[in-house]
Write a protein that binds this DNA or RNA. Structure first.
Lengths: 198, 198
DNA sequence: TGAATGACAGATATTGAAATCTGTCAGCAC
DNA sequence: GTGCTGACAGATTTCAATATCTGTCATTCA
């Protein structure tokens, strides 16, 4: 129907990511995004009220993409301990791969995420809900012995911070990383599986 | 003997801390330090080869002071589980108090620590050695069941990162912090105490 | 009528000249 | 001789003028 493609938020986000990739976070301007789309920068403001909101939307997209594979694991069936371990390893892997593949883009998204702290909070909550889901199934299965599932899920998430929080990404190249992750996960799973007494 | 107090590295460090406190990291200059001591800035360079080395020395002093109370706990006697818990809680408290009492100074030391990453590494190693010490006593006492003490000590240290690493200090005001720390420590201690099978 | 434009004001970033700082060293004082 | 000074060169930071960007809106175009 249209020869001229309509300007949608989706297309703008696409273009914004491209511009961020090319120019980097500091140099990327709304004018650049508009130029990439061959429209005036005023048009971009028709879809996003501010540059900040545009950046937030990009951050949100990124977080959503990172979330998808984890959601799948959380929703799967089978013994909870193995699933929790897989979930944690996958989260650690996703972050590690992101930073390896394109460290500059990772740094860009990191700063973006800092700005969009509300979106990050929501993202974290979703992740913790997934852990809650796995752990509560583990309790039902009799594999885990846990007093407060929500609190414990947070504890598991917190305990692995060192390996999934971007603040620590420059330590993810430690050659002993694999062994250290193994030790940590083994300790956590032992703690979850131990009959409760504390 | 001397009416004029001699210029020692110790006095220079003292003055440097004072200058950092007054002017902040960005504005503190070697000239300021010299002025505070009422000497020429050339004299400072007689004791420290560069501004960077002076900063590193200040960072090291700070880390050493933070280390002292923990060292004491590690060297104490008694049941290892309680001692480990106390050690971890003390580490968490020390950091929290530092950031509460004087957030600006904390930020200053944080940046200083970033620059002196070698000193920080050494500091961390000392801390982990303390955890190793406590855990290995726990194993001797039959309270802990652990395959690789060193690796497990690192795992415990890593697991608590969220509550002692300065990168996360802006989340230390969470009202649920106490409950979350409790849950985390309880999980870790359960993991250490559980008969090993993994 | 509804999307897009482009000129505009105020905010933010860049730039280059001037000021300040770092690090050195010949010389002074004790 | 030992420890300090103060002048100096080169590096870094500051500051203010200039350029660019953000966000708005009256106007255009289909």
């Amino acid at each position: 129907m249209n020869e001229v493609v309509v300007l949608t938020p989706e297309r703008i986000l696409e273009a914004t990511e491209e511009v961020l990739r090319r120019y980097g976070l500091a140099k990327a301007t709304v004018v650049d995004v508009a130029r990439a789309l061959d429209v005036s920068h005023g048009s971009v403001y028709r879809h996003f009220p501010s540059k900040a909101s545009l950046r937030q939307a990009v951050a949100k997209r990124w977080l959503d993409r990172a979330n998808a594979p984890l959601q799948k694991i959380a929703e799967a069936t089978g013994p909870a301990p193995a699933r929790l371990e897989k979930w944690l390893r996958t989260m650690i892997d996703i972050k590690y791969k992101k930073v390896c593949e394109d460290p500059e883009m990772f740094a860009t998204y990191l700063t973006l995420a800092r700005e969009a702290c509300e979106a990050v909070k929501a993202h974290k909550e979703r992740l913790i809900d997934q852990v809650v889901h796995i752990i509560s199934e583990g309790v039902k299965q009799g594999a885990f012995h846990v007093a407060d599932v929500k609190l414990t899920a947070r504890a598991v998430f917190d305990a692995t911070t060192r390996y999934h929080h971007p603040a620590h990404c420059d330590e993810w190249n430690d050659p002993a990383k694999a062994a250290r992750v193994d030790a940590l996960l083994s300790l956590l799973l032992k703690g979850l599986e131990a009959p409760r007494k504390r």
